[in-house]
Amino acid sequence: MLLPTSSVGRKLVMAATGQLIILFVILHVLGNATIYFGLLNAYAAHLHALPPLIWSFRIGLIILFSFHIYYGIVLTLENNRAKPQSYVMRNDLSATVAGRNMVWTGAVIGSFIIYHLLHFTVQITNPGLAAARHLDSLGRPDVFTMVVKSFQNFGIASVYLLSMIALWLHLSHGIQSSFQTWGLNSEQSFPIVKRLSALAAIVLFVAYVAVPVVIATGILK
């Protein structure tokens, strides 16, 4: 039961971990919003003032991601094996680019998360900007400056933008898919669920890219 071997069981793990990760994605973007109100440094300081909370969060996320990635790969390998030969003439009626490339958008997101952690959490990709070494006027790590200066770099902003496109694609298939996997789907709700999850994916995408975009375009300094 803990490590499901059945097809549906593993997909349920994918759906469950995916949905929990989406909750984190939503929390994260809400946290990001503090930057517009000049509260980013305060928010960061608050988080770090509670090590048990932050660490349980981190451990939880590591577990969720491990399962999600592991079963994502297992399922993909099995699926590829089940379809060894493709059609000369392929014609998709309802499968989408997003749906067909979940493992690749997942891989992009995974790589991005590693980079993102090295960049803003461990802060070793751009040591010159590391918040840990630059305090603000109140003596807190100056996360705000680190973020702003990073995204003023066009290369870094592009990496974030492209990765968020991958997230958007991943979620546009993943959200509705997770509802179907849980069986939360009827003929009446199906079109609505599909549309709402497409909308949710776009909203999250816009919310995430807003920060690098407003900084790179000089709106937020």
């Binding site: 059945s6 097809s7 549906v8 069981g9 593993r10 997909k11 349920l12 399922l75 099995e78 699926n79 590829n80 094996r81 089940a82 379809k83 998709d92 009626l93 309802s94 499968a95 989408t96 749906g99 067909r100 979940m102 298939h173 509705q176 898919s177 179907q180 996997t181 849980w182 069986g183 939360l184 789907n185 009827s186 003929e187 199906f190």
Partner: peptide, 30 residues
């Protein structure tokens, strides 16, 4: 393979079998 919720199956089904039955299967499984 495993269901990837692409719904191609429903799109080509000559008898219009709906993917809601897959949701039903999932519920039955749970």
């Amino acid at each position: 393979g495993n269901c990837g919720n692409h719904y191609e199956c429903q799109a080509v089904c000559p008898k219009d079998i709906k993917v809601q039955f897959i949701a039903k299967l999932n519920r039955e499984f749970i």
